[in-house]
Design a protein around this nucleic acid. Structure first.
Lengths: 233, 233
DNA sequence: TCAAATACACTACCATGGTAGTATGTCAAT
DNA sequence: ATTGACATACTACCATGGTAGTGTATTTGA
């Protein structure tokens, strides 16, 4: 691989000027979500600290937060392990996310702010480009941004934080299914329908389309359990 | 105060056999919610560690988690402070809680499990006793339990965790308003209506009554802002 | 050969010392 | 009287050593 080629998802380097703990958290989290750290794999504070070039304290703090997210299991005095993909927890994360995002998008549709709609349409354009180019990584980033715009536009920062946290349980299956042919286009169409509902000021339609969009993950889980039964509970 | 009198809410003692960090977290959290630690008050790792008889590490970990809950503000290299009651954050917490609990109770009503209804009625009986006795502390405990039963009965442990976390923002105002005359009875009646809806299997009615119940806090905020403007942002 | 006892390597947890960064109060210079 | 430099006293953050508890391999007993 030449210096110009971008690794599929390189773990971001650690900046010694910034607080270490959040960076370590983000780094490990991304590694788990992208399955560089495989489910059930043992993680050791000492080893991670060595790899990331920091001491054990920020690593420990990061692992505690990841345990809170349900992405790692900490067994006191025994060890810390990447959490297996537990279907029940994925479904519960979906339930929580759906409850929140549907409520959020309803509020967005009630306001139906043209400036917000414009920003959403810009995001849609970028999504279309990524989908047409067959760029799952790029699409993923813009997908995140799309959903962020919704929460932020109605000043629900905390809701976004909660969604982000529980979404970790969903992202591992979502990321694995992204490369499937036609999938990106499907997601784009669903986003489009949501924006149209918002633009028309119909909270009920926005709710409906968001619900359908988020329940897409059910199909993803089914197909994935057949292909990769090894990484489930 | 004699040895038989129970302090209104004594901070639970630290058990050296159990993991310290969660105990410290719970202890400080309760102190904040019950306003023994006042908004904007400075907290120092060292001082808290000394008071609780533990080292600074578990205190630090507890404070990090409390910062995540929005109950303390950590300013790196400057200090940690009990978060003021920010109305915008209280309202957002209400939004999140409402979205989740309404979805939960709808699911509970869809199932309408008689065994669950029976457990809810038992909780109602205990609430009534506490309300009639004018025991806000006892009512509060049973209130928590009531809402816990709802989430647990449909196997939504994570949802309960999320609700608990964001509810911290609401509890400070809720706890202050509990002693108001007639308030306990009101809450009891609202709980009762919710249980009736569940028993009749009407998800729509359950949603409606839960929404109304949770929006009670709006009135609480209004009256409290007039009485105690000092503790708001 | 097999079971119980032991030693070992490993863990997360807690305690504590060092460091860089920030606020405040003191004092000199203008 | 006001401003600037400097010393001091804090802070959160990170590094690291010690400890009790846990699995596993090894040895010891028959």
């Amino acid at each position: 691989m030449g210096p110009t080629s971008r690794p599929s998802t390189s773990p971001p380097a650690i900046d010694p000027k910034l607080p270490m703990a959040p960076q370590v958290y983000g780094n490990i989290r991304q590694s788990i979500l992208h399955l560089r750290l495989m489910p059930k794999q043992a993680l050791s504070e000492k080893e991670l600290a060595l790899m990331l070039g920091v001491s054990r304290t920020p690593v420990r703090e990061a692992l505690i937060k990841l345990a809170d997210d349900g992405l790692v299991d900490i067994f006191p005095q025994r060890g810390t392990f990447v959490a297996p993909i537990r279907v029940s927890e994925v479904l519960e994360a979906q339930f929580i996310r759906e409850a929140l995002e549907v409520s959020v998008v309803a509020r967005v549709a009630e306001r139906s702010d043209p400036e917000v709609v414009a920003r959403l349409r810009e995001s849609l354009a970028r999504q279309k480009r990524a989908a047409d180019a067959g760029d799952p990584e790029g699409f993923m980033v813009e997908d995140e941004n799309f959903h962020f715009i919704l929460s932020a536009s109605v000043s629900l920062a905390r809701a976004w934080k909660v969604i982000q946290n529980v979404k970790g349980q969903l992202d591992r299956v979502r990321i694995m299914s992204l490369p499937e042919p036609g999938h990106l286009g499907e997601l784009y169409e669903q986003h489009l329908a949501i924006v149209e509902a918002i633009a028309s000021g119909s909270a009920a339609a926005a709710r409906k389309h968001m619900t359908k969009h988020l329940q897409q993950v059910f199909r993803t889980i089914d197909s994935l359990r057949k292909q990769r039964p090894d990484i489930f509970d």
